[in-house]
């Protein structure tokens, strides 16, 4: 394991590279998924199609996608645009379902009351549906975050520096410490992102704080909504 001790600066550098690639992807996946999820949820016909499509999209093996994308986009294989778009597509595939589910979890009685109180469609969405869907969105975002951080190791084969380089190099040189460093730092980043997302969620949705334990529990999530 002396490899780790001798290469701490390198580990730090690759960790920062990894964060620089994944953080924007997680944010983009979230921002793009909200409108898609809204459409999926708004129209019954589109729901099944959008959700099935996003589920199957996630089954696309990642390496071919990263190689095929530049052909479609006209970017270089190593271009940050290629990698960001590829990872974001997977993020969206995961997040759309959560968004649609979150919006669907809002009690129709609540939305009807909001309408009755004179909310316009858009203000009802921003001030009632979106906040109430928040806990489910948050849970979805956590999954997107973890999966993006893990998936970003794959782009190392394209020559984009991420923690994945420790796997390729570690396997070639038969240095187990290097492989472990890659695995452990990937998990550490995922955990740190998770903590940040959960804290942000508490900040933005103070009403869930008392029952935050229930946030990720499907069976009780609906009850988080009810008392509001």
């Amino acid at each position: 394991m002396n490899w780790i001790g001798n290469n701490l600066p390198l580990i730090g550098e690759r960790t920062l590279d990894h964060i620089a690639i994944t953080a924007p992807v997680i944010l983009l996946s979230f921002l793009i998924s909200v409108p898609i999820g809204w459409v999926a949820n708004r129209f019954t016909a589109s729901r099944g199609i959008v959700l099935s499509a996003s589920g199957v999209f996630y089954a696309i093996p990642s390496l071919p996608l990263f190689v095929a994308l530049p052909v479609i986009l006209g970017t270089g294989l190593r271009s940050p645009v290629n990698v960001t778009i590829g990872l974001t597509l997977y993020g969206i595939a995961l997040m759309v379902r959560s968004t649609a589910d979150g919006l669907a979890s809002v009690d129709p009685d609540v939305t009807q009351s909001a309408t009755a109180m004179g909310f316009s469609d858009s203000s009802r969405f921003w001030r009632v549906e979106l906040p109430l869907a928040g806990p489910v969105l948050l849970a979805g975002l956590r999954v997107v975050s973890v999966s993006t951080v893990s998936l970003a190791t794959v782009v190392a084969v394209l020559g984009v520096p991420t923690l994945g380089l420790f796997f390729t190099d570690g396997v070639e040189r038969n240095i187990l410490g290097e492989i472990w460093a890659g695995i452990v730092m990937t998990i550490v980043i995922a955990l740190v992102f998770d903590v940040i997302i959960v804290q942000l969620g508490r900040l933005l949705m103070p009403w869930t704080r008392s029952s935050s334990a229930a946030v990720s529990r499907p069976g009780r999530r609906t009850r988080v909504v009810a008392p509001v």
């Binding site: 996003s54 979150g102 919006l103 979805g140 956590r142 999954v143 069976g219």
Partner: peptide, 26 residues
């Protein structure tokens, strides 16, 4: 009472699941 599957956290990208018990809502 159509209710979104509330996946997210623990279960990801699974098929359309529904709230199981009508009573759970109220």
């Amino acid at each position: 009472q159509p209710d979104g599957e509330t996946s997210g956290g623990p279960t990801r990208k699974s098929g359309p699941r529904r709230s199981l018990i009508a009573g759970a809502r109220r």
